[in-house]
Write a protein that binds this DNA or RNA. Structure first.
Lengths: 212, 212
DNA sequence: GGATTTCTATCTACCGGTAGATTGAAACCT
DNA sequence: AGGTTTCAATCTACCGGTAGATAGAAATCC
């Protein structure tokens, strides 16, 4: 049983993110996440993970008692990690618009790297066959993102960069919905440009209709 | 083997849609579709279908040789059916805006009735573990919808109802992406209002920024 | 410091259950 | 009677999960 898992030696970003996991556990999480994002929760087995990591399926159970546990750990980590990236990118960008562009490029990178979708979108689609614990964590993930976007958008309005009707929160929901939907469409069309152009147009629209 | 399947006695809408299927086959398709839209392709089994329809799993194989065949038939029917509904609603609505509202209410109905997502979105998410035949049909489904939306939006621009930058096609992609994403978010939030408000805002935005 | 004990991480072997699929016979229809 | 449809029985492959053993590192004892 995984009583009190301690880390051995991980580096840089991982250091702070996966502090509670040792190297094997991290590898399991990495592989599992890639599998969920490309095939969905019900689209892979413990065997798939074991083969890729080079361990036996029983070893996975040592770290994550059930598949639901594994999924829950996955979303928790994803949420945390994306939060850190949002913070980093907020510091790096000089304008609200630039912040939104960098943010959308996080999602674009998923598509480009491995034809993957957002973990949250994937698990929400399969919500009906998932442990409620996973579903709850997924909902929090959406809330996180919309809140952050609403803040950025409100900043943009204050600074005069953005002009729009409705509330910043509503605009945030709209933008996030469009990004998630655009990822689906880009995967269906096998064309990352589909995502990029939609993302760009959405951000442009925030600045008012006059400019293209 | 299902050589030449003929219908026995179906009614109204089904008559034209499922002309190639008899009653059992239609029931299989209906149940399977509901299952895909709530749990995903990999989230249900032949047993699930058989139990609900009241038949044996072997009977499903009689009509659809493989699970992939079943899924392909599902998307083909979905595509056809949604096409008919779009046509019907285009005749019923007096304005482009109204047409878009009725169109979005088709998706809202899915959420309300059974917490279901769009079949196309579901299958696209799981694309990596699906027969290529199914993926192809799903791509066509997206194209159908975007084309139709682009036509409606262009009509709206011509009549002066809509004002926007970019092309009608781009606006159609944006709107469709937002609708698909909004369905995901609404399911995650367990709040159909989340979908409705996003849909409404998207349609309003087409009319220019001045009005809320 | 050396022997003993405990703990960590992993393995092999296996569990009951279920997946999609096949076959061949029975039932049904007309 | 002959085609159509359904079923019961069965298959092979795999699912997630568990049991028990083991090697090696760490902690404890004397």
């Amino acid at each position: 049983m995984p009583r009190d898992i301690r880390k051995t030696a991980t580096s840089s970003e991982r250091e702070t993110l996966d502090e509670a996991y040792n190297d094997t556990a991290v590898q399991i999480l990495d592989v599992a996440q890639a599998l969920v994002q490309s095939r969905g929760y019900n689209g892979f087995s413990y065997r798939d993970i074991a083969e890729r990591v080079g361990i036996q399926t029983a070893t996975i159970h040592y770290y994550f008692t059930s598949k639901g546990d594994l999924a829950a750990a996955l979303v928790a980590r994803y949420r945390k990690r994306l939060g850190q990236r949002r913070d980093a990118l907020a510091r790096a960008a000089e304008s609200p618009r630039h912040r939104l562009e960098l943010y959308s490029s996080l999602f674009r990178a998923l598509l480009i790297d491995n034809d993957q979708l957002c973990l949250g979108a994937m698990l929400t689609a399969e919500a009906a066959s998932l442990p409620s614990e996973v579903v709850r964590e997924t909902t929090r993930f959406f809330d996180d993102n919309v809140s952050w976007l609403a803040d950025v958008i409100e900043d943009g309005r204050r600074s005069g960069d953005f002009v729009f009707a409705d509330s910043p929160f509503m605009q945030a929901r709209i933008l996030f919905a469009a990004l998630e939907g655009a990822m689906l469409m880009a995967r269906a069309a096998k064309d990352v440009g589909m995502f990029s152009s939609i993302a760009q147009a959405m951000i442009s629209q925030l600045q008012g209709i006059s400019d293209a």
